[in-house]
Design a binder for these strands. Structure first.
Lengths: 112, 112
DNA sequence: ATACTATATTCAAGATTTTGAATATAGGTG
DNA sequence: CACCTATATTCAAAATCTTGAATATAGTAT
């Protein structure tokens, strides 16, 4: 495939507010879907849809532990792209941690 | 606006094969539209459309010299994003310089 | 003014993306 | 097995993107 086409595919995969937020959540390592649900305050099905888009693009992969699925970014260099992006736009993305306090994530990882 | 929304807008602007190619052409500094036309072997109106998209996104600006309009990237750090991207995808974009030989660009800059 | 050149704009049809709603599945527990 | 929990899938309508075709504009030269 045309190199520009390939680059474009990759960029399209991350060119979405929710998917960017999901990637940010995965900065510190794997997280389960329920954690994203609690942090972003979005419906489960919707998050799952966006996760599938990221998965199809080869950006994330998942690991099952009981009922929970833990997603992680395959190539951490992706964050380097995002950081460079921030330096260009001058915008620092910030996760809404306050929302996390409202809704609780029931997964074992969050409830040690 | 939501930071993720802003990042997303920026990414969408560059998430297009032709626009990526245009940006690559502008790596070495300003170039006129006819130059892009000759290099990419695409219709003028189409290139102009893509340039407007880049302009609307605040990525490029133009300077008129007689009949020719010379476009340039406003923030060169944009190339840093593209380079980081290449290092993630493992894909090095290469401009079709051979095509440039076929079609001639008539602008003064190219015909010194 | 006329004609020519370089570039921009408008319009519309088709393709793709976005997102909500409903439903399905897979694993765990009793 | 029946039921619950975590997550995935399907479907469809609305929104947006893509791109070709036609046309407009702005500068230059005669």
């Amino acid at each position: 495939m045309d190199p520009y086409e390939t680059q474009s595919e990759f960029l399209k995969a991350i060119s979405h507010p929710t998917r960017l937020a999901i990637l940010d959540i995965l900065r510190d390592g794997e997280q389960c879907v329920c954690h994203m649900e609690a942090t972003l305050n979005l419906r489960q099905a919707y998050i799952s849809q966006q996760l599938m888009t990221l998965k199809d693009a080869g950006l994330v992969e998942s690991r099952r532990d009981g009922l929970n699925l833990y997603y992680r970014v395959i190539k951490p260099q992706v964050f380097h792209v995002l950081d460079t992006l921030s330096s260009v736009t001058g915008i620092a993305t910030q996760l809404p941690e306050h929302k996390h306090a409202d809704l609780e994530c029931p997964c074992p990882k969050c409830n040690v």
